[in-house]
Amino acid sequence: MIRTENLTKTFGGICAVNDISITLKEGEIFGLTGTNGAGKTTFLRLLSGIISQDKGTVLIDDEPVFDNRKAKENLFYVPSDLYFFVNSSPKDMGAYYATVYSKFRMDRFRKLVDDFDLGWTRRIQTYSKGMKRQLAILLGLCAGTKYIFMDETFDGLDPVMRQAVKSLIAEEMSDNGLTPVISSHNLREIEDVCDHVGLLHKGGILLSEDVADMKTEIRKLQCVFQNEDEQRKAEKMLNILNCRVDGRLRTYVVRGTEDQIQGTMKEIETVYAEVVPLTLEEIFISETEAVGYDVRKLILD
């Protein structure tokens, strides 16, 4: 388990990570999202023990991670800016990591490199950006660690490779108990892969929930009322987070399950009413607007 308590990190006068207390359970994929400069990379570096916190604690399996060999044996960090030795090949990098991580699975790594057609002895500096990212992910997945932290994981990967990587991650989770922490700008990718999502903004956690819970407990209601009285009646009965008006068509973001909302709408006279699921993006926008942030300015598509 990864646990942070009051985790704070400041660079110069800027608070990059601001008092984050969070628990990441094993066996779940945690997705970290936020705008540029939100603190995602800094948070991952703190988890990886690359930088030390100013305040608070970072514990991996109850061990502080900074400058701690034992804690770091259980984690692998795939940064957004990758580094490989000059003139090295996957074989060389594999051999290096085999000396670093005692459980590194060289055979599996070799097989995956061949499966992904990366060229076992091909020089990495001839790779494209996407290929380098693939290689870095493969190295991480074969390191035999309990946790893997991946920053901007899917950047540069084509859709086919993304699926392949997702499959691999899932396979490692089920076969070897791997717990990934993935950061990305891409909410759709996060939604697709992650069990638990955290939204970072200006160093702080704005939102942290299970994806399934988020989707279950918040819905979009599109309806056209018979008259204004029915409209007012509905708005009193529903827990509305957000409303958009388009002529007579009203679109509400409503907190509640589908059954609850439909049950309520039976008592309202409408011309048309339909409950549809929200995307993660829509959920975030609504939730954060509810706490006073205009997240439309923040979330990038």
Binding site: R45, S48, I51, R69, Y83, V100, Y101
Partner: peptide, 8 residues
């Protein structure tokens, strides 16, 4: 990032 994340 490369070196400091390693178990050393």
């Amino acid at each position: 990032d490369f070196y400091e994340s390693q178990p050393e």
